[in-house]
């Protein structure tokens, strides 16, 4: 890992609690994310990982707790606010726009940066056309980066699962985020696809300096690519630290490896 330098705290989560009706999804969870690092959140199914990610990018609002992004409080942030603040994410069950082509899907990631008004777009003249070309060029860079040139005009619904995941990542990258949230980026992939995905994540982190927060349910590859790891279990934090520290943590061992191994 060359070139990147881990910086200050960019995202700080303090005492987050979230519940649905009587179900406590997250209980009093605090951790922080440093600029340029790869931060993993791991835990079993139902441990609250996805809820955690949804809290970070404003899909859910926690009942308690504070989200501090670059020193600013964002407790009442909605997902539009999160996007504006430089957070992008991918989805576990691939939430691509299935009626659109790969190119259009990625272009939607640029929407916050496109400023032409509706009238300009309707006549396709001046700002609208210029913008469309500029952003197309940027999107093509991402397409090259993720090696999906051959499918750019294909409707996403026709793509195999692994490629859809890559398009999902491409769309998030098109936002040029400061923090990239990845929801189980390797779930359901074969070994080869997992390796590709790992490479892309590390490349993004390395080349663009993007801070990456990812969640995964198995410890495997994640431990190899993360700088620090948070472990959740039934909505509670049971471990936090470097991969080695976490591996040595007795709570994590009993929750993870305990009985079954």
């Amino acid at each position: 890992m060359s070139g990147r330098k881990i910086g200050e705290v960019i995202l700080d989560l303090k005492n987050i609690s979230l519940s649905f009706g009587g179900v406590k999804a997250l209980q009093d969870i605090s951790f922080n994310v440093l600029e340029h690092e790869v931060r993993a959140i791991i835990g079993h199914n139902g441990a609250g990982k996805s809820s955690m990610l949804n809290v970070i990018n404003g899909v859910y609002r926690p009942q308690q707790g504070d989200i501090i992004l670059r020193g600013k409080h964002h407790t009442n942030m909605d997902s539009y606010g999160a996007a504006n603040a430089g957070l992008a994410r991918t989805f576990q069950n691939i939430a691509l726009f299935k009626g659109m082509s790969v190119l259009d899907n990625i272009m939607t990631g640029r929407n916050l940066k496109m400023k032409a008004n509706m009238l300009q777009q309707a006549v396709w003249f001046g700002a609208a056309q210029r913008e469309e070309l500029e952003h197309r060029a940027k999107v093509e860079e991402i397409i090259d980066f993720l090696e999906i040139q051959h499918i750019r005009k294909t409707p996403v619904g026709r793509l195999p699962y692994g490629l859809q995941k890559r398009v999902d990542l491409a769309r998030a990258l098109a936002m040029e985020p400061q923090i990239l949230l990845l929801d189980e980026p390797m779930a359901g992939m074969n070994v080869e696809e997992k390796q590709d995905m790992c490479r892309f994540i590390l490349d993004v982190n390395d080349q663009f300096g993007t801070t990456v927060v990812l969640i995964e349910h198995d410890m495997g590859v994640v431990m190899d690519i993360s700088d620090r790891v948070v472990v959740l279990d039934y909505g509670k934090k049971i471990g936090d630290g470097t991969p080695d520290e976490v591996r040595a943590n007795p709570d994590v061992i009993s929750a993870y490896l305990g009985a079954s191994h």
Partner: peptide
């Protein structure tokens, strides 16, 4: 851009909000 926003809302509104 306008049309892409419309189609994004049509296809998957939660994901659309998440990308702004």
């Amino acid at each position: 851009n306008m049309g892409r926003q419309w189609m994004a809302i049509r296809d998957m509104d939660v994901a659309a909000t998440v990308i702004g």
